[in-house]
Simulated assay, not measured.
Amino acid sequence: MKVTWAYDRGDHRDNHEVDLSAPAALSAVLHEIHQAGEPVAVTIFSQAIDDPDELPPGLQIGLGHPTHSFAVHIAADGAYLNDPTVEAPTAGLSFDLGGVPTEYPAEYLRIRPDTAIQIATAFLATGGKPPRLPADTE
């Protein structure tokens, strides 16, 4: 699957793209991104499409914030995943989305970063089946 993320560097966008097929490799990349401490939206595309104006199906997660993340399934019936045991932050948080700082509402940020990485790894391992919370967070 194709994994993309980008940072706003003021005078340019710092774009990244890798193709990964092993869940362990994806987990390692996502942990590295998170440990950098720069809030960023990471998109994992489950399949390519021909229309450049349309967002391919996949999963998007927010990494880089110390305590809060998001996970959203990109599909016609997709939605944000929320862990009912995680309290939303007091305000929305900004993550770089394609190199554009983007504010995410607090109600979408009820996932811990480690949980977001688990969701993404499972998404890759299942070949892009609709994501769900890991069993230990439900």
Rank of each mutant, 00 (worst) to 15 (best):
Q60D: 01
A91Q: 14
L93H: 02
P89A: 08
A36N: 15
E107Q: 13
S94K: 02
Y108A: 13
P52C: 02
P84V: 04
E17Q: 14
V86M: 08
R13C: 09
H68K: 07
P84R: 07
H34Y: 08
G99D: 06
D50V: 04
I111N: 08
G99F: 06
L55H: 06
A25Q: 14
S94C: 02
F45P: 00
P84H: 06
A91D: 14
Q47H: 15
D19S: 13
T43N: 11
F70R: 03
V42A: 03
R110Y: 01
S46M: 12
P101G: 06
I49V: 15
H73F: 09
V29L: 15
V18R: 15
A24E: 15
G99V: 08
Q47W: 00
G92A: 03
V72N: 11
L109R: 05
G37Y: 10
F45K: 07
A106N: 01
G78Y: 05
L93G: 01
A41H: 01
E32Q: 14
R13Y: 09
N82V: 14
R110A: 06
L26Y: 09
T67V: 10
H68P: 06
A106K: 09
A71C: 11
P39T: 10
A48F: 01
P57A: 10
F95N: 04
L93E: 02
R112C: 01
A28D: 15
S21T: 15
T115R: 01
P56E: 07
P56N: 08
I33F: 12
G62C: 03
D53H: 11
L63W: 07
A88R: 13
P52N: 02
N15S: 06
D83S: 03
R13I: 15
A88E: 14
H16W: 06
A24Q: 13
D96R: 00
A28L: 13
D19R: 14
T67C: 05
I49K: 07
E103N: 12
Q35I: 00
G78C: 06
A71Q: 06
G64L: 07
P113Y: 07
H65T: 08
S94Y: 05
D19Y: 12
S69I: 04
T85K: 07
P105H: 10
A36T: 11
D14M: 04
V40E: 03
P66W: 10
E54K: 13
F95S: 03
A24L: 09
A75G: 02
I61R: 02
R112D: 10
A22V: 04
D77S: 09
A48S: 15
V40K: 02
S21L: 07
F45Y: 14
P52Q: 02
A88H: 11
P39F: 09
E54V: 15
S21E: 14
A71H: 05
D77Q: 11
E54H: 07
A75Q: 05
R13L: 13
Q47I: 00
